[in-house]
Design a protein around this nucleic acid. Structure first.
Ligand code: MN
Ligand code: MN
Ligand code: MN
Ligand code: MN
Lengths: 227, 227
DNA sequence: CAAGTGTTTTAGTCATATCTAAATTATTAT
DNA sequence: ATAATAATTTAGATATGACTAAAACACTTG
């Protein structure tokens, strides 16, 4: 007896991108608003309203008029599936095809919607089932559970004297990524906090002291050196 | 001064697939008809008419009412670009990700429309700029010229006594591909023609004689053993 | 060469995803 | 609490690419 696999809905590229942005926005806030989604997706607010109504009808989001949306269980699964595709693709493009870490995002943004589950599985195997992408972002496993990285903390939360290793650079802006790379602020690099001011952090990286503006420091995640 | 790159039109997946099928049909015939295109693309004839009118307005095909279509220069370039994507993808999926030769077509059929020129170039480099895909089909080079394979001939055109090597298996039907594989009739295999009847060919392959129905033999291309 | 048959095109409809402009609802400030 | 402002939704339009049904055209056959 063959039953429908309700977990495998066929979603359009647009629908998947909406779910992904709702996912990102609701990492911080309880609900994703129409305006915020319109900004992230580069469409008009009216377009967002129409789409989230449809996603609501499809059971992928919980939508409250004039309030905003949150993902349902099936919507979350779809978003995580897409995120896994995205981050595996970024890692594969980097490791197998020599893409720079500033190049991977754009290509993955498109391909994430069109690769099969077979492609996903073969990439994961080729890469040895990685738990982070080239920027250090965590990759959900094949059951869509996030890998545990309990030691991961924000650089910004640390006091003078902290020594540790960068594990994640939280941006996908190409210029910003190139800046981080130029400074050697990449996953794996070790650094220590020398001094903290209101709007910057003085850090030591490879013997060199840098003054790191809050706007950049904010985007770094670190782990204490485990020797 | 920056000029538009007229060679890089933005085409939809549907438009690209129409161009590709027009390309295949006009390999044999001077014009591709509405009915034939509808069959190949799995759409209604009326849908084909509307689309080829649009492709005509876009300058991608030469369309004669009630006669059929042929590719223009720019349409041919677009079709060959897509064909290069398809066959490089098939080769890459096979070589890099371990796809079976019966699995590559379906995945490539979708991804061909969504990979970037960068992705194309990196795959080609990774593979060492191959001139054939896993089925032996020729891969247009980066200038969209076909590789020269002057020794390639159809098995069916040969007389008793011919000895040579299979270079191409001209089908993308999964069951048929598996049959060929099962029989050892894959690119690289050597065989000789023992006997020819009206509707079959008796061939020797790895010491084993086979009776090869015309319907299968027709799909094989060979080269004389060059010792 | 006039019918009849089959192919091709036209016309009208639908689904998707976008837009702008107008109406509605919610929030903020007086 | 009311009025102004901002966010959201509705309404109506557009583009794409498909469909069906009907009309137009082109072959083939008597
Ligand atoms: Mn995307
Ligand atoms: Mn990333
Ligand atoms: Mn295709
Ligand atoms: Mn092939």
């Amino acid at each position: 007896m063959i039953l429908f696999d309700m977990t495998k809905k066929i979603l359009s590229e647009a629908q998947e991108d909406y779910l992904k942005q709702i996912y990102f926005l609701t990492e911080t806030l309880p609900l994703a608003g129409t305006q915020a989604l319109a900004d992230k997706l580069g469409v008009a607010p009216a377009s967002v309203t129409v789409m989230i109504q449809k996603l609501g009808d499809m059971g992928l989001v919980e939508y409250e008029q004039y309030k905003g949306v949150r993902l349902s269980d099936s919507g979350l699964a779809a978003a995580l599936e897409l995120l896994r595709h995205h981050r595996l693709l970024e890692t594969f493009l980097h490791q197998a095809l020599g893409y720079g870490w500033d190049e991977v995002h754009e290509e993955a943004e498109k391909l994430e919607h069109y690769i099969s589950e077979t492609f996903e599985a073969r990439m994961a195997a080729w890469l040895g089932h990685p738990s982070r992408d080239p920027h250090g972002d965590p990759i959900p496993d094949s059951n869509l559970k996030f890998p545990l990285h309990p030691e991961e903390t924000r650089l910004i939360d640390h006091l003078v004297g902290f020594e540790g290793r960068i594990v994640r650079v939280g941006t996908q802006d190409r210029d910003e990524l190139n800046l981080f790379r130029q400074l050697g602020l990449v996953p794996g690099a070790t650094l220590s906090v020398l001094e903290a001011t209101d709007d910057a952090l003085r850090v030591q990286l490879n013997k060199e002291p840098y003054l790191l503006p809050h706007s950049l420091a904010q985007k770094l995640w670190v782990e204490k050196e485990s020797l």
